[in-house]
Simulated assay, not measured.
Amino acid sequence: MRISILTTIAAAVSATALGAAEIAPTAVSFEDGAVSQSLTGVAGDPANGSEIVGDKGQGNCVACHQVSDLADVPFQGEIGPALDGAGDRWSEAELRGIVANAKIMFEDSMMPSFYKTEGFIRPGNAYTGKAADDTFGPLLSAQQIEDVVAYLSTLKE
């Protein structure tokens, strides 16, 4: 009996792991700018998303947006809309689409495409100021996108 329970648990864990395949940046499906399917199949971590939003070496969202919840992060920007209430203004799918590639929903947006690897005019190597090399990848990983979306979803009016 004990072996069959362990076998069932192992099978469930394997099925979950298989279902949690990461979607590549080139395979993301946008619908009117929104991305309804999780990029990882794993729930985002709002605490990690908060760190990414406020970290000038990762998402650097505060360079353009103000976030009252991150008042301890200095020099917040005023170029983009304040992110306070983002969880009320946009659905999870819309937030995922905006963070992955805002230009699909907002054509004239100055926001960088955080989960894109092709179609650039002059790509750089992340935040290094150098030209892209053979390690060129998205600015944020699929899980980081999910974490940021989870955090932004918590920002209610």
Rank of each mutant, 00 (worst) to 15 (best):
129 G>A: 03
75 F>V: 15
18 L>T: 06
38 S>P: 14
93 A>I: 11
136 F>Q: 02
141 S>G: 03
153 S>C: 12
59 G>N: 04
57 G>D: 05
9 I>Y: 09
152 L>W: 02
69 D>Q: 10
121 I>L: 12
46 P>D: 14
109 S>H: 06
105 M>N: 14
67 V>S: 01
72 D>M: 11
78 E>A: 08
104 I>C: 12
154 T>Y: 03
33 G>I: 06
94 E>C: 05
12 A>H: 07
19 G>H: 06
41 G>P: 13
151 Y>R: 02
89 R>G: 14
143 Q>A: 08
29 S>T: 08
115 Y>P: 01
130 K>E: 07
74 P>H: 13
16 T>Y: 04
55 D>L: 08
29 S>C: 15
138 P>R: 03
71 A>H: 14
137 G>Q: 09
112 P>R: 09
114 F>K: 05
65 H>N: 03
72 D>C: 07
135 T>F: 09
32 D>C: 07
63 A>R: 06
45 D>Q: 14
152 L>Y: 02
147 D>Q: 00
19 G>F: 12
96 R>H: 07
6 L>T: 07
62 V>T: 05
149 V>G: 02
15 A>T: 08
99 V>M: 02
91 S>G: 01
102 A>L: 04
62 V>N: 03
129 G>R: 08
134 D>Y: 05
91 S>Y: 01
119 G>V: 04
115 Y>S: 02
148 V>G: 01
143 Q>R: 07
121 I>K: 08
13 V>Y: 08
114 F>S: 06
103 K>D: 14
110 M>H: 06
86 A>Q: 08
79 I>Y: 06
155 L>H: 13
134 D>K: 03
13 V>Q: 06
149 V>Q: 01
146 E>Y: 04
105 M>D: 13
45 D>I: 12
122 R>Q: 08
101 N>C: 15
138 P>L: 06
118 E>Y: 14
22 E>I: 09
99 V>Y: 00
42 V>N: 08
26 T>H: 09
91 S>K: 01
15 A>W: 05
30 F>H: 01
80 G>C: 14
138 P>M: 05
39 L>P: 02
110 M>Q: 14
45 D>S: 15
63 A>Q: 05
64 C>H: 06
89 R>W: 10
21 A>P: 07
142 A>Y: 00
104 I>M: 05
80 G>L: 15
148 V>I: 02
23 I>N: 03
46 P>H: 13
49 G>F: 03
26 T>C: 08
143 Q>Y: 10
136 F>W: 01
62 V>M: 11
105 M>S: 09
134 D>A: 07
25 P>A: 12
80 G>S: 07
149 V>S: 04
16 T>R: 08
118 E>P: 12
94 E>A: 13
12 A>N: 15
